[in-house]
Computed example of a mutant assay.
Amino acid sequence: MQINQVVITGKREVSLQSLTLEEGNLAPNEVLIESERSFISAGTELAGYTATDADVYKEGAWCAYPWKSGYGNVGRVLDAGNGLSAWIGKRVYTNGPHASVFRYTLDPIYRIIASVPEGISLEDAVAARMAMVAMSGLDNAKPGYARWVVVIGLGMVGNLAAQFFRLTGAHVIGVDPSARRRQVAQDCGIPHVLSGTEEEVAAGVAELTGGKLAEVTVDAVGHSAVSLQALRLTAQGGEVVVLGSPRTEFAGNLTEVFRTAHIRWITIKGALEWYAPTESPLDHLYTQQKKLAAIYSWIADGRLRIAPLLTHLLPPQEIKAAYEGLLNQKEDYVGVVLKWK
């Protein structure tokens, strides 16, 4: 079978390639899927596209060039191995790539498959990929309700993280230099937004919280300088959640980090989404399947707003323009979906 697939071949080199896919002899835990939509993860995919992630040059690494990018997909199951025949014909969400058709092996740790509920648009359904990332910020913070939470960075992940905290009753403050992203955040129900210098943002947070600062501060950017800023905005006994993946070098004073955390009892937590397994034989354990089910439920009843964040629906032939737009036109490109059929 001839398919089309996005392949990153080198630094800022990407194309839609015609490849041959063997469609038969599926393993018992394998399905064949025809794509309808796939979602571009701006953080992970641009890190590979720009070679910010040094692993692109390491042979055998998961993102080594040539890299078949993408890990959020909605499509129809065309065929399945003996153990998964019940999925044939169903519309499913998977961590599949940007490809017209692909083979997908299920894995209890990293490889999810789930039915897409009726009534949810294909674009919202596939954008759940970034909601899965964003929800890790909430997952890793201590439980709390009427607390002050600051989210720095109001792109796709930061906006959704802010919405998740608000769903728990938190008083959320979003921080971003982009007026457009601040407005979208407010359109999504985030009541307080700030911008300006670090000093101006700190003054704004102090004013809103009555001088108490934030019980939880989330770095949704993925830059060490932002994590340091987050530390300064966090109240005594609070938490800094590193939601974005830091990838670029940063020269700073580590003593300030550890001294602040030490004196003010601040906890710094990582929030990579893959910590929770895809599924578990024990019903009471938290899994990626349960997370996705919750996200789809909140989209369906209107509590989680994704549509305002979706800026582009593009054919896969425009993948180069999509990556360049996400890289260089951050005001205009936020949520980008590829339309396969």
Rank of each mutant, 00 (worst) to 15 (best):
Ser18Trp: 00
Arg166Pro: 05
Gly48Val: 13
Ala276His: 13
Val241Cys: 08
Val201Tyr: 01
Thr9Lys: 10
Arg147Pro: 00
Ser69Tyr: 05
Glu45Ser: 09
Val201Lys: 00
Val6Trp: 00
Arg103Leu: 05
His98Ala: 08
Asn82Leu: 14
Ile295Phe: 05
Ile113Cys: 06
Val149Ser: 03
Asp107Thr: 03
Met130Cys: 01
Ile295Glu: 02
Ser280Thr: 14
Lys68Ile: 14
Gln288Lys: 13
Ala146His: 13
Arg12Gly: 09
Glu273Ser: 12
Ala127Gly: 06
Ile112Ser: 09
Pro281Gly: 13
Gly155Asp: 01
Asp301Leu: 10
Ile112Glu: 08
Trp298Gln: 14
Val226Thr: 10
Asn159Gln: 14
Ser69His: 06
Ile113Phe: 11
Val337His: 01
Arg303Val: 05
Leu160Pro: 08
Lys339Ile: 15
Leu292Thr: 00
Ala131Thr: 03
Glu36Met: 09
Arg232Cys: 10
Pro117Asn: 09
Phe250Asn: 14
Gly60Phe: 08
Val150Gln: 01
Ser297Lys: 15
Val56Asp: 00
Asn82Asp: 14
Asp187Val: 10
Val126Pro: 04
Gly96Glu: 01
Leu21Val: 08
Pro315Glu: 11
Asn159Trp: 01
Lys142Val: 09
Ala127Asp: 01
Glu279Leu: 12
Trp67Glu: 06
Gly210Asn: 09
Ala51Trp: 04
Leu243Cys: 06
Glu13Ile: 13
Val193Gly: 07
Glu215Trp: 14
Ala134Met: 02
Ser136Glu: 05
Thr105Gln: 13
Tyr93Gln: 07
His192Thr: 07
Ala230Pro: 00
Trp67Thr: 01
Asn95Ser: 11
